[in-house]
Design a protein around this nucleic acid. Structure first.
Lengths: 319, 319
DNA sequence: TTGTACGCGTTATCAT
DNA sequence: ATGATAACGCGTACAA
């Protein structure tokens, strides 16, 4: 049986409310008794009971992250940054790889203070039944939602990519990304390419990566190359897809310009010169945390706000 | 403010203890009132308070998974299987990507029912201070630990791999894996290769993959190939490393025999014929869950038991 | 400065 | 069949 405040109180010959105060450094307790109590608590290996605390304070200092698809390097990096940012802000982050609605329901039952969703569209939408009861923030692309979402402007990013390729003199562009999907982020990228290339009057082809992982992209490009050849202006839908594409691109082919979506440090260790465009993972993380904690601390309702973050273009030279 | 049992009681004109019973289908309540209460509860969007439950029952029906390095495909697959198995067993799984000791401490404070650790050696070792207070099970390779560990016999697996290569007539073997690391799993693989190849009197080389990710392996092999060439018997330390190595292997090179550690379904979609050797992820998952839940339900102390799981060899033909 | 007492939402035991 | 009540561990307003 775990050690409780009472146990410590008995040991120290004080009442348990004094112990409670002492352990949270209340000014209402003498330094001397405080020290004694803390020492004892430590010696007895006291572990505060969050359930009890949460019952009285209505706070768990814990945030749940809903992240159904634990793969893809890019998003892993983001999760790590979010974890750090939350720690800084005094929260513990916990992730569920379960189905989003089940995950959120459990988070509610556990009385977590807030939830973050890596939004992918329909499949990750949380019902109001849930979101009326806990601060929520999503990360993804702007869409009709009863809770705030960090919008990373995939369309803006894709336009920058196209502009860059045009500037480099490429009139033929290949976009490699996931085409047949419900993931709204992927859809936006694809549609932007279509519209913007037409607007700018450059030729483009859409090549289906058949998924978001490196392996899927690698195989898709391989199939493609059996009958066709890649143009010199290439846009990849994500870091992982770029990795898959690069298997088939000669590093010494300096004709080609490759631009990939995402903005993570891993691009720096690629051996082929490459451009990337996206919002830095740190920035996304700190924005998520800032908005969520504000909403928690003010106790305000979730509102359908869209928080815009703008991508930036970077060049990664050959290492 | 969240709906409580009391609120429902008032609405239904019964006492809240009746509501409590009704909602857990106690036989002590009439079907009629039960139905009425359940209906109301649903309508009022009642969400049970796990903190309160946990306080009285000492159970949270939640398990924490400690998984500091969310990358690598192979282990992601395992996590997914563990999540499923725990769900079947009536538990909710939650993962922390934080530093293992902090994660475990928080799990304790949250009064989770048990913790699973993806063990990597020193860096993921939990102190007794913690493990004396909660059922723990690790996944990794046998080592001195105050709590049970599922041992997947990397050495057995590597021996099978070497035997296979010898049988296929290869007297020169290349092992590609992470060589300079504290990760005990990698160390065991490496050392087994060394000893067993010497015992069997076959030539071998150790090639450092410089990490456990596909990208690291890919670059390492590329460097290697600048001055040397790969032997026809190749052993890869993991699925991800194999993926990195395959970038440099011609699919049509039927001279080569490639064996990779791990046993996950992803091997089936590789386009190069490949062998794999390892314990199936499902089996690891169900073993982890079985032992942990037994330990939770019997309330027994953590003991330093080693649970052995044996790898099996599989061939994946060209798709 | 320290102690007492109440309440948080729930379960479980005991009366009714 | 239903209701009243104690207890779980803790925070805090109030009393001493």
């Amino acid at each position: 049986m775990a050690v409780t405040l009472k146990d410590i109180a008995v040991e120290c010959g004080v009442s348990y409310s004094t112990v409670s105060k002492a352990l949270k450094d209340s000014p209402l307790v003498t330094e001397a008794t405080k020290r004694k109590i803390k020492e004892k608590a430590d010696k007895m290996n006291y572990i505060p009971n969050n359930s009890a605390r949460s019952l009285v304070s209505n706070k768990s200092h814990t945030i749940g992250l809903i992240w159904p698809a634990v793969d893809r390097v890019a998003i892993t990096t983001l999760a790590t940054h979010v974890n750090e940012a939350l720690k800084q802000a005094g929260y513990f982050m916990v992730v569920s790889i379960d189905n989003p609605v089940r995950a959120a329901s459990k988070f509610l039952e556990l009385r977590f203070d807030g939830v973050i969703v890596f939004d992918e569209g329909e499949s990750t939408t949380l019902p109001e039944k849930i979101t009326n009861n806990i601060p929520v923030i999503a990360y993804g692309v702007a869409r009709e939602l009863p809770y705030p979402i960090i919008n990373v402007h995939h369309n803006w990013a894709m336009k920058q990519a196209v502009d860059l390729l045009i500037e480099k003199g490429h009139q033929n562009i290949d976009y490699i990304g996931e085409l047949h999907t419900n993931d709204i982020r992927q859809i936006v990228k694809q549609e932007t390419i279509e519209k913007y290339c037409e607007e700018k009057q450059v030729n483009y082809r859409l090549i289906d990566s058949g998924g978001l992982t490196e392996m899927a992209a690698k195989q898709a490009v391989k199939r493609f190359l059996k009958t066709e050849t890649l143009h010199d202006g290439v846009i990849c839908g994500s870091y992982d897809i770029a990795m898959g594409v690069l298997h088939h691109v000669d590093e010494l082919d300096l004709q080609k310009t490759i631009v990939a979506y995402d903005n993570i440090k891993q691009f720096n260790s690629i051996e082929t010169p490459i451009y990337s465009v996206g919002v830095p993972a740190e920035e996304i993380a700190s924005s998520l945390v800032k908005h969520l904690t504000r909403s928690i601390e003010t106790g305000s309702e979730n509102n359908p706000e869209v928080i815009d973050l703008y991508p930036s273009l970077q060049f990664h030279e050959k290492k």
